[in-house]
Amino acid sequence: MSPKVYVEEKKTKPNGAAVAKPLQGPADYKRYLVKFQSLIALFILCLVIGLLSDKFFTVANGWNVMRQISVNICISVGMTLVVLTAGIDLSVGSILALCGAITAGLLKFGLEFPGMDMFVGFTMLGAVLAGILTGTSLGMFNGWTITRFKVPPFVATLAMLTIARGLTMLWTEGFPISNLGSNFAYLGTGWLLGIPVPVWISGVIVLAAVIVTKKTRLGRYIYAIGGNESAARLSGININRIKIIVYAIAGALAAIGGLIVTSRLNSAQPNAGISYELDAIAAVVIGGTSLSGGRGTILGTVLGAIIIGVLNNGLVLLDVSPFWQQVVKGFVILLAVIIDKANSKGE
């Protein structure tokens, strides 16, 4: 009896697009399993939590989870771009806090110039733009130190983590800045067409990031740099410029995350965003982006962020101690990396 041989045929449509091929054997099943592993994990996770808690599959809880993960999605999208270039950004949590505080401070107190007897007040638009501009600038600074002085991204952004946190404390004097008005609160707590505003914001960011990574030159350069930086340089890509842009985007998205957090609480907390960078990295890794760069997708990261969000929510609903929640999350990240490594070997 001759063994079965599975022959993979390349089929294309007249326009060159690949034609979906029916599953033909164990290898195909394995490939699909690997491709959709995050989705399967999410499905199983939801099923288990849903069986253990009757509050999980409720509309209110669903929106609650979506609101919560929208901040992580904003940060994770930026982190994905950074990781795709084989970098890392540990400063996003602190940048989030600083930008939230700056927005809140400008909105509430404005700027005073006693020597000129001048007060500069900020409208909501102005305060929001100032926050985003701050995040972008700090991200650019990260990119500049990494490219100009060849500081490893881990160290450069670790330094920025401390700098931004210190600046937040200086700006807020260690106190929360609260009561920022109902207009600003709308950003984090409002609804638009039956969907929470933070979900809209993160949705637009995801859409833009998908377009950038899949359809633009910048996206192709990002993958090229992460895949093989030397080859990318030799092919004429301005590596430094692209990296600075990528870190600037990560900073800007962290700032937007900061606006959502601040608006949601109607208060800028000096301690906001602590360890948010870890959740973002976790979402990126769980979503299948390789930490060595060049491989990964924005949608994978979104899925990773949803898994983290659902896991957080489930553990809270199941009344698991916050200490155990951290342990569980750590193991989930570890498991994701191990599976990713195993898959990479297989490829």
């Binding site: 005073e112 006693p114 001048m118 007060f119 500069v120 007040g121 638009l125 305060a127």
Partner: peptide, 15 residues
């Protein structure tokens, strides 16, 4: 346009 809609100026002593 953005700057015009972002900030406003007043006398600090009055504020």
């Amino acid at each position: 346009l953005l700057a015009y809609n972002s900030v406003y100026f007043e006398k600090l002593s009055e504020v």
